[in-house]
Design a protein around this nucleic acid. Sequence first.
DNA 1: GACTCTTGCCTATTACTGATAGGAATGTCA
DNA 2: TGACATTCCTATCAGTAATAGGCAAGAGTC
Lengths: 194, 194
Amino acid sequence: MVVDKVAQRRELKIASIVEAAWGLARERGIQLVSLHALAKEVGMRQPSLYAYFDSKNALYDAMFAHGNRELVARLSSLDLPDDPRAALKAFMQAFAAFAVEDPARNSLLFRRVIPGFEPSAESYAVAVDALSRAGAVMNAAGITDPGDVDCLVAMVAGLIEAQLSNEPGGTRWTQHLDRMVDLLADDAHERTSR
Amino acid sequence: MVVDKVAQRRELKIASIVEAAWGLARERGIQLVSLHALAKEVGMRQPSLYAYFDSKNALYDAMFAHGNRELVARLSSLDLPDDPRAALKAFMQAFAAFAVEDPARNSLLFRRVIPGFEPSAESYAVAVDALSRAGAVMNAAGITDPGDVDCLVAMVAGLIEAQLSNEPGGTRWTQHLDRMVDLLADDAHERTSR
DNA sequence: GACTCTTGCCTATTACTGATAGGAATGTCA
DNA sequence: TGACATTCCTATCAGTAATAGGCAAGAGTC
């Protein structure tokens, strides 16, 4: 493993480029990240970036994976309450807060705004990891029917979308989240106990 | 009004260009509509389009208004049942069907995928017209609290998003829509009657 | 220490994007 | 017929992602 010294330096370089790319994305929007601006940011010329990424979509893929690793880390570090319903609420609040706090990241991870971009299998696996955690918390709270899961996911996604497109300081979306969890969990409980 | 003959011909030309632009958008996605391809489609060179639209965003604005007029027409032509709850369900079903049947149109009208594009005041007014109809139907069904309205809108938007990003033939999203209307309307009724 | 040889970055160039400048032709109206 | 506005053109520019090919610095081997 002596050869890895050069490989490791390369990995660090790639990480710093992805970091700079996220900085640009936060400044000007994820769609407006240009390789020229990114190269300037990291002290290179635009074509030199192709030594690290085969295409612009490959850069987006690295950013996608990076963002999803952040999400997994955030969800893993949660200290959820014992009550399953309360845990689900806290989990969804954390998820929504993660999405709302960085619109550029939200666009790349959860909306499909880059025309040709499809995450690679490896990057997609990281995203699936995050989503499976959400599934576990929902199941624990009694939301097991696939239709119910879909509904709750749609509800949360819709609220996040609304929060991001509305003027700041709008409706109390954190309360809405809790209400939606209650509505669906109550309904699911009622249906299964009958 | 004799001078209008030329103006009317111009309006027809603009309409045909917008029509062709929507055709391209359906083929390759709303973000990938290029003025060069559009000009070729209508038998012009790319710079000639600037005789009709000041910028590409002006073209998007005309497309936005056109799409919203389609939406208003669709919603106006609905023959809703008398029962307010059933009417709300039918209305939401029609709205969702409109959104799902044309992903490109959905992207321009309801998602924000064109970086610099903000609809003009006139075009926005058409969109507000459509949304106000939705508000009226919701109010009639007993969903009057602004928070409830926001929640229902978020639910429907989330389901549309899920339907569009999922593999075709997935979950029964039309049933989900009815269930969400019931859930929220029942809850609203329960709260106001107590 | 001199030899390859890979890696990292460069300049130059291509095709395509939206946008502007300016000219030629067409048709309208006084 | 003459003035004018409309319509479309060619030519051009700056910015985008992407490719080709070259140059130099560092690593490993003899």
